[in-house]
């Protein structure tokens, strides 16, 4: 399998948020500001690459029956590393993300990739898959968090974009805004994909 294909598979074709619809909790919770969204995305990407690499390395040693607990321990180890790292070097972000850093352990994306990809593929492919899925996840987080920050406080990455007369829609910083905005975004994504799919069908029929 070509590595570039593996990478773009994670970013676009099987985007964890918009297509596979997994790992929603952290997506909704941390996207109140673009900065937080980016940090969470990077943390998850780090854990994904690390756990994918290790799972791929140990895939032939671990007996099939206890593979899930073994994978969870690997993932939890990387999450702890990331957590300690953030606590030491990025205290603000650590406080902002709070409980959702340890909760990366139960983020379905990571276990799903370990189980469905890394446990069946070689080292390099697994690392690239982790990177691709991580970038796809980060991208989705960025889109949602930029929109929420822009609508909810009129800024992007803490830089004020709109004049003082702008009345921020605080609802977008609160839980309801997150749910509704993500619902609409996935809806838009779906309609684009539906259009593309119907176009492809048309092209195939014309080619015949």
């Amino acid at each position: 399998m070509k590595l570039s294909k593996v990478f773009f598979n994670g970013v676009v074709k099987e985007n964890p948020i918009f297509v596979q619809l997994i790992g929603m909790c952290s997506v909704l919770a941390v996207t109140t500001a673009a900065k937080n969204g980016l940090a969470m995305g990077l943390a998850v990407t780090g854990v994904l690459i690390g756990s994918n690499v290790v799972v791929s390395l140990i895939r032939k040693v671990v007996p099939n029956k206890i593979r899930i607990p073994a994978f969870i321990v690997v993932i939890a180890t990387f999450v702890t590393i990331v957590e300690m790292f953030m606590k030491a070097y990025a205290q603000d972000l650590y406080n902002a993300l709070g409980i959702f850093i340890p909760l990366i352990v139960v983020n379905c994306i990571i276990l799903a990739r370990a189980e469905s990809f890394a446990s069946k593929h070689g080292l390099l492919a697994s690392a690239v898959d982790g990177l691709g899925m991580g970038v796809g996840y980060t991208l989705a987080l960025l889109i949602l968090s930029i929109l929420r920050e822009f609508l909810g406080s009129g800024s992007i990455f803490d830089i004020q974009m709109l004049g003082p007369s702008f009345e921020p829609a605080i609802i977008f910083l609160m839980p309801p805004g997150a749910f509704i905005l993500l619902g609409i975004l996935i809806g838009i994504f779906n309609s684009i994909r539906n259009k593309q799919a119907s176009k492809e069908v048309l092209q195939k029929e014309e080619a015949r």
Partner: peptide
Amino acid sequence: IPKALEGFPIALITAGLMSIAFL
């Protein structure tokens, strides 16, 4: 329901409205 919103998206929007109620 509009085709693009079927399933997950409409559920998320419903959850948003419920969340407003819980506020």
